[in-house]
């Protein structure tokens, strides 16, 4: 009987986890992030809401002040660009020219106030090229 109780508890846990993952997945998974162009196109509706924007970090746009912990950079999809502000150190592999996805809110001034930054990795793998 003990064994059966344990199995039933396990079944409840599995079903609960499945429901949790499906609900979380429906909310976030179909469109994981929007592009800067899409954000600008729906600029008014997106204001003050939580959004996830992804793009390439514009080379030369990154400024990081260790004293105030202010990180600023711009994200582009080639046609549109948005400014991002983040409080905290950039993630380890955060590099200009690489992809990044930020989650945060889109403020009145048109700046994305990021609460988290995720570095997007491409499907390209290669050893480092020797520096000249």
């Amino acid at each position: 009987m003990m064994r059966r109780t344990r199995l039933l508890i396990a079944a409840v846990v599995v079903v609960a986890a499945l429901i949790y993952v499906i609900i979380g997945g429906i909310r976030g998974a179909v469109v994981y992030y929007i592009t800067p162009s899409e954000l600008l196109a729906q600029a008014e509706q997106a204001r003050e809401k939580t959004i996830r924007v992804g793009g390439r970090v514009v080379p030369g746009s990154k400024t990081w002040d260790p004293a105030t912990q202010e990180l600023r950079f711009r994200l582009t999809d080639g046609s549109a660009t948005v400014a991002v502000q983040y409080h905290g150190a950039p993630p380890g592999l955060f590099t200009e020219g690489q992809g990044a996805i930020v989650e945060g809110s889109w403020d009145q001034a048109g700046v994305v106030r990021a609460r988290s930054i995720i570095v997007k990795h491409s499907e390209e793998y290669a050893p480092p090229t020797p520096r000249p």
Partner: peptide, 15 residues
């Protein structure tokens, strides 16, 4: 270490 997160609600991860 690479993305900066253990888990996120991405379609590949969720499925």
């Amino acid at each position: 270490p690479v993305w900066g997160t253990w888990w996120t609600w991405d379609a590949r991860l969720v499925t």
